[in-house]
Every structure is written in C-alpha cells, then in structure tokens.
C-alpha cells in the first residue's frame, strides 16, 4: 500500500480524491484540511508521498512543504502539488523548489493514481542520480 498524505482545504475535492484513489486498493490515504493540521498529523507518521494543495487559508502548500522538510524523515518524501494556478511559469517555479510533479485542477480522478505513481518513480530516479 502506498501511504498518501493529502492536504486540501476543499472537503469535496478531498472526498473525490479519496474515492478515486480507493478504487485500485493500492493507496492508503490520510487527509488533512490545512497545512497546520498536516504538520500536527505527521508526528509519528511518515507517508510515501505528500499531495499538497497550493492555495489554502493559513499556510500555503509551499510553506507546509518547507516546514515538513525541516524534519529529517521528510527530506526525501516526494511532494506533489495540486493547484488551480497551473500556468506554465507557476509549474516551473514549483518544480524548481523540489516538487516531484504538479497536478492541475481540475484533475482527472481516474488518472490520479497513475499520476502519483509516475511522480514517485520520477522522484526515485532523480534521487538515485
């Protein structure tokens, strides 16, 4: 099972993502409604991948990742951003700060699982390099 930490403030999107990811039975999804909640949740829990919404009230996705990266066990956990501001330049910026991938909203729920697995694979390859 791939452990996913999904941080998203929109409850509907959280539900759709969870439903989509549960279909294959390959993912174990933990969900948080904010960056602050996510930071509290990771005490004693290290996921295989983090799925982060960019624009959230309070801490943004970037700020949340920055705080997570302060923990040694999170140094190499792949982070995937989900954003409604998926313009080319913005995607480039997120990749620059270490995102394994950027998923544009609206996303295809049926392809979400594959997209996450591909990003994890890509992150593994780049870590090995």
């Amino acid at each position: 099972m791939i452990k996913i930490l999904h941080v998203e403030d929109d409850a509907d999107i959280r539900e759709i993502a969870e439903m989509a990811l549960s279909l294959s039975g390959e993912f174990d999804v933990v969900q948080c409604e904010s960056g602050e909640a996510a930071l509290a949740r990771i005490e004693g829990y290290t996921p295989d991948v983090v799925l982060l919404d960019m624009m959230m009230p309070g801490m943004t996705g970037c700020q949340t990742l920055e705080r997570m990266r302060e923990r040694p066990e999170f140094a190499e956990v792949p982070a995937i951003f989900m954003t409604a501001r998926a313009q080319h330049a913005e995607i480039e910026e997120l990749l620059q700060i270490g995102a394994a991938d950027v998923i544009s909203k609206p996303f295809d729920p049926m392809g979400l699982g594959d997209q996450i697995k591909q990003a994890m694979q890509k992150a593994r390859v780049s870590q090995m390099a």
């Binding site: 759709i16 989509a20 909203k105 295809d108």
Partner: peptide, 22 residues
C-alpha cells in the same frame, strides 16, 4: 478564474467517477 477551478474540480471529478462506473 482560479476560484472557478475549485468547484469545477469537484464537478468534473464527481462526474468522472460516475462515468467510470465507480
């Protein structure tokens, strides 16, 4: 434009799941 994307994510996501037979 960006605010419209969030509800659209839910709308399209929900319809996508329904269409897939999930």
């Amino acid at each position: 434009s960006h605010e419209l994307r969030s509800p659209l994510t839910s709308i399209k996501g929900a319809m996508g799941l329904l269409l897939s037979g999930s």
